[in-house]
Every structure is written in C-alpha cells, then in structure tokens.
Amino acid sequence: MSRAVLRSGVWLGFYILILWSWWMMFTMSRNMDLDWIGRPGPMGEAMRAMDPRMDMYMPMAEFGPLFWMWAIMMAAMMLPTLVPTLRSYDDLIRSANGTRAGWIGVLTGYFIVWVGFAALITGVQLILLFGGIVDMLGIAKSGFVAGGLMIAVGVFQFTRAKEVCHGVCHAPMTYFLGHWKTGFLGGLRMGLGLGAFCVGCCWGFMALGFVGGVMSLMWMGLATFFMVLEKLPQVGHVITRPLGFALIAGGLFLLVHPFTLGG
C-alpha cells in the first residue's frame, strides 16, 4: 500500500469518526424524550424520592448513560478542532521522522484526555442535577447561575492560563518541536500533553453547555465553531478577547434581567 493511499485512508477514517459522532448526537438529541426512558435503578429511586410524580427513570440522571453522551459529544466537538494539529504532524511525516503510527498516537492521546474530561464533567452535572441547580437536560434553572457562569468563562479568556494553553493549541508545531517523540508511544505521549493543554483552553466552552443545554445542537455547533476559530493560525489570537467581552456582556445581561431557564 502506497503512502498516499495510507494517508488518505487514515484521514478518511478520521472524518468518518467526526461525522458518526455528530450523527449520534443528532439522534440522541432528537429522541431524548422518546427513547431515553430506561429501566428503574438506584438513581431512578432517588429521583422519585425528590419528586413523587416521576414514575419513570431517566438515564440522564445516571453516570453511565450520561458519560456515554458526554464522551460522544467530546468526539463531535473536539475532533474537528484537532485538524490543524494533525496537519502539522502530517507535515513532519514528510519532512522529518514522523510516522503514521505516531499520527494515530497523537489522536489517541488527545482523545483519552477528553474522555477523562467527559467523566469529570459527567460527575459535575450529576452534582448540579441533584443539587437542584440544573434540570434533567443540564440547563441552569436560574438566570443568576447562567449569568455567573458566562462571566466566569468570559473572564478566563483574559487570564494567563488561557494565554498559555491557547498558545500551545494555536501553534502545535512549536509543541511538537519542543516535545518530539517518535513512534506510536511517542505520539501518544505528545497527544496526552496536547489534550491537557486543550482542556485547559476549552473547558469553559464545555461548561457553557449548562447555559444553552448540554444536548442542544445549536450550542454544540456554536461552541465547536468558536473553538475551531481559536485554533486557526490566521485568526485564533485575534478572537480570544472579543469572545471574552461578548461572554461577559451576555452574563451581565442575565444578571440584570434574571429569569428561569430550566424546568
């Protein structure tokens, strides 16, 4: 098999994975009210204790199904943002001693980190749900909570932590040159590092799901769009602070005009 055919096949598989992830999210979002009612369980008993009218168990209140949803969401939203990084490694396959196994290693390490973040934010959502802060769809019940979260994420856009993490995501070639390791294990190690910086850069956009609804395709699309823009070499460094100003303004609006968001 020629290198060109192998390269095309690997990239095709990558894009198919992205399309499959978005299709799964579309399907789950569309069928949430119809198909996500499952068998009774411990979490269902807890929900019925909180609200006797609830005689059916919702998987969105249990770790396993909710983690599965977040993991697919991570793939749908974050894999498109990895394209500039994988293209940078692709250049090193042709100009240095990068390998296709290393390319796959980078992708694998990156995905492992974001799946770990999916587990973390699943736990956060369950805490917020049983604390009465968000509803079953993960939407904040109070405009004060939503506004405060938007302001916090907006302020983060101006911090040194955001600058450092965004700098790595914005210029992956620099990271590769400074942490270069060969082979699959080398790529895996670099992918883990890149994934950690990416979580540090983009966690706020994920947290905003508690404002727009974690199953909202509109929120997912907008968040993915802005995260991709932040990583583009030509415009990424230009939009970070304007996004911060926009988020702070939106959060202040919700604080001044609070209203009930969730059920």
Rank of each mutant, 00 (worst) to 15 (best):
T260E: 11
D55R: 11
G244S: 04
G251K: 01
A246M: 14
W23K: 12
W203D: 05
V168C: 09
I18D: 08
I151L: 02
M227Q: 01
L107M: 14
V235F: 09
G132R: 07
I37A: 10
F259A: 14
G200W: 05
L261P: 00
K181M: 07
G178L: 13
L177T: 10
H166W: 04
A146S: 14
S95R: 14
G193W: 01
G186V: 06
P258E: 08
M54I: 08
M47S: 10
C202A: 03
W180S: 09
V124M: 14
G236E: 09
Y110D: 02
E62Y: 13
H237G: 05
V164K: 13
F226K: 04
I127P: 01
T224L: 00
N31K: 09
L128C: 05
G200K: 07
I18Q: 07
L66V: 06
G105E: 09
V214F: 11
L149V: 06
R48D: 06
R53L: 13
G41E: 07
M73L: 08
V235C: 08
K231C: 04
V145F: 15
F197R: 00
A161S: 11
K162T: 03
W20S: 14
L120A: 15
G187K: 06
P80Q: 06
C169R: 03
R53G: 15
P172K: 05
T159Y: 04
P52T: 02
M69R: 12
M50H: 13
T99H: 11
R48P: 07
G44K: 04
R7W: 11
S29C: 11
W219R: 04
T174D: 12
R7V: 12
G187P: 03
D35F: 14
F259V: 12
G148Y: 15
G195E: 01
L252G: 14
A119I: 04
S8W: 15
L137A: 09
N31E: 12
L126F: 03
S95T: 14
A4E: 12
I93Y: 08
D135G: 08
G98D: 08
A46H: 11
M56F: 12
F197L: 00
M47Y: 08
T260R: 15
G109H: 03
S8G: 13
